[in-house]
Amino acid sequence: MMITRRGCLGSAVAMAALIAAGPAFAEGAPFKMGLLVPGSISEEGWNRIGFNALKGVEKELGAEVSYVELQQNPASFEKAFRDFASQGYNVILGHGFEFQDAALEVAPEYPDTVFLISSSYISEGNVIGLNTDTSQPFYLMGVIAAKTGRKAGLVGGMEIPPIKEAFEGFTNGVRSVAPDFPVSEVYIGNFTDATATKEASLSLISQGADFVLPNASGATVGGFQAAAESGADVKTFSIFSDYTSVAPKNILGLYVADYARGVIRIVGDIKNGKKPATNVEFGLKDADVMKFTYNDQAANPVTEDVRKYVDEVKGKIAAGEIKTRQK
């Protein structure tokens, strides 16, 4: 019954070859990587970062890649992992902590597949967490904010670990310079409503914040628009992608996360038979992954003194001498 069903499909569906191949996928077969993202890859933000990593692996390691968007639907996670694993994918990246449970469930059945989980600290068998410690660059932004401004405002999408950690780092950075420096946080409650990010930022600015930092995936851009419309005195920092064109006068610098670099490195190792022994944490020590640069076109560019101080702090963070957040 099963065999005829498969035979049937074989003539009709191109993918049948993949199904029939099953787990016995070894030498000669192309190296394959799958990606699960919780939302849409079409917007600048979290999901795009995962997608770029996938594309990087395709380009640099010559892997066959595919992805699936799961619309924040936990019920689909397990099936998606299984769909990829049963088609002989060697590496599957679940882009977000929420994929951890499902990966742990599926992984024992597919010991030859490596399950990578973004923003997770897991390390159990073939399930490996990858975390970009965003609290580190945000710590630096906090230092800059406290050195150059009067009050800081943070606008988050939802209260999830990558965003909470970033904001914790920022606040700690601020405190390290000026313990009484005011920092406000606002959450808009989603990752799509760019207008809400904009209004929340404007509201913070009207309450005296002169350093606003949006962090809401696809909706982030609204924060930079708010800064641009509020005059050159309002400062901000471009995060994850380059938003300089939106607010060229306000953006003091860029923190660009090249997560792809990190993922390519790890997946390259896996391809060569070296599975990471434990979970991986990218930080300022990984200069290829975290790029922290300044924008000299800003109306009030960061002064040399401050840059020097920031570089010092950066060195200490990379060396592990400063803890940017509680672990």
Binding site: A14, S40, S42, Y67, E69, Q71, A80, D83, Q87
Partner: peptide
């Protein structure tokens, strides 16, 4: 829904 997920995995068609 199931089909659309599979469709995206195998043919990269947007699930929407």
């Amino acid at each position: 829904r199931s089909g659309s997920e599979l469709m995206q995995i195998t043919a990269q068609v947007p699930q929407v």
